[in-house]
């Protein structure tokens, strides 16, 4: 890796557009919201104002957000997302692996076929999922022919996890594809030649070599899962609330933007802590550099 001072022109050319875009169109807007998270609704004529705020009044919103009520919901969101991410990884890996080892002619098509369902609007897709899995849906109709069911497959935590896996699949497949594709197949051959079984080769060679892709995929799936609200809303039952739903409500029905902002930042801090931990562990093992 070069020191940036060795080639300043190239460094700045590469760094400038992204940094500018992120600073102006992301960090700056987010700053408004960050200020908001330390603010409160203003009092006007003895009443709490609907649209005005007193800025930078303190950390009341953060205190409210560590109430056990919200911590329970955050914890639940974490394990639902973790389960969904794991399931996603387990299903996406063979797909990405298969695509990479398919013939050149089929590769682009297979890749396209994975992404294609996701060009249909999330909401429409979720409704289609409901049509397939509801009590009188096609799965139950098919099972009915076999003399089974009908089963209640929707409106529970299982449905939410399944829905999340379905929704975020390409976020796992694409990074996995990108790393497995560049996997040096001679390592696999060497491993096999030296007498390791396919299974051992996979666990000891393939998985470690594709770890960057796995980690990227896990991040890309886990984090959006954590903030999702539409899927739990539509597929979850009476118990399915996730932190994304609470946040969404603060910005809409409850009209409590400061609290919504504080909850969002809490979620971000948690994710950041996890990412830092990962970076720290990665550095210690001094293995892959993502």
């Amino acid at each position: 890796m070069d020191n940036w001072k060795d080639n300043k022109n190239v460094f700045w050319t590469l760094a400038a557009p992204g940094t500018f875009w992120l600073l102006v169109f992301f960090i700056l807007p987010l700053g408004f919201l960050f200020v908001m998270s330390f603010s409160d609704k203003a009092m006007v004529n003895g009443e709490v104002s609907i649209t005005d705020y007193d800025y930078l009044t303190g950390i009341t919103n953060y205190i409210r957000s560590v109430d056990p009520l919200y911590l329970t919901i955050i914890w639940k969101s974490i394990w639902v997302s973790a389960l969904a991410t794991l399931l996603c990884l387990v299903t996406a890996y063979p797909i990405a692996f298969g695509i990479c080892f398919a013939s050149e002619r089929w590769k682009p098509l297979l890749l396209l076929l994975v992404v294609l369902p996701f060009w249909i609007n999330l909401l429409i897709r979720t409704y289609a999922l409901i049509a397939v899995f509801r009590t009188q849906g096609y799965v139950n109709l098919t099972l009915g022919v076999l003399g089974l069911g009908p089963y209640d497959m929707l409106y529970n935590n299982f449905a939410v996890i399944f829905g999340l896996v379905y929704v975020y699949m390409p976020f796992m497949v694409l990074p996995l594809y990108a790393t497995i594709e560049r996997l040096d197949k001679s390592y696999l051959e060497a491993s096999l030649d030296l007498g390791a079984s396919q299974y051992t080769t996979f666990l000891k060679v393939t998985v470690p070599l594709t770890m960057p892709g796995i980690i990227t995929g896990v991040i890309l799936v886990f984090i959006p899962c954590l903030g999702s609200f539409l899927t739990p809303d539509l597929l979850g039952g009476a118990n399915a609330i996730m932190i994304g739903n609470v946040i969404e409500r603060q910005f809409k029905a409850a009209n409590d933007w400061p609290f919504g902002a504080a909850l969002s930042f809490m979620l971000m801090y948690a994710t950041f802590a996890a990412l830092m931990l990962r970076a720290f562990l990665a550095k210690r093992s001094a293995g892959v550099d993502v």
Partner: peptide, 20 residues
């Protein structure tokens, strides 16, 4: 810093951009 847009809940970013 580059990972921020991935980390943040969508609605939060939406409202931030609306304000901006």
């Amino acid at each position: 810093f580059m990972g921020l847009p991935i980390v943040i809940p969508e609605i939060c970013m939406g409202v931030a951009l609306l304000l901006f």
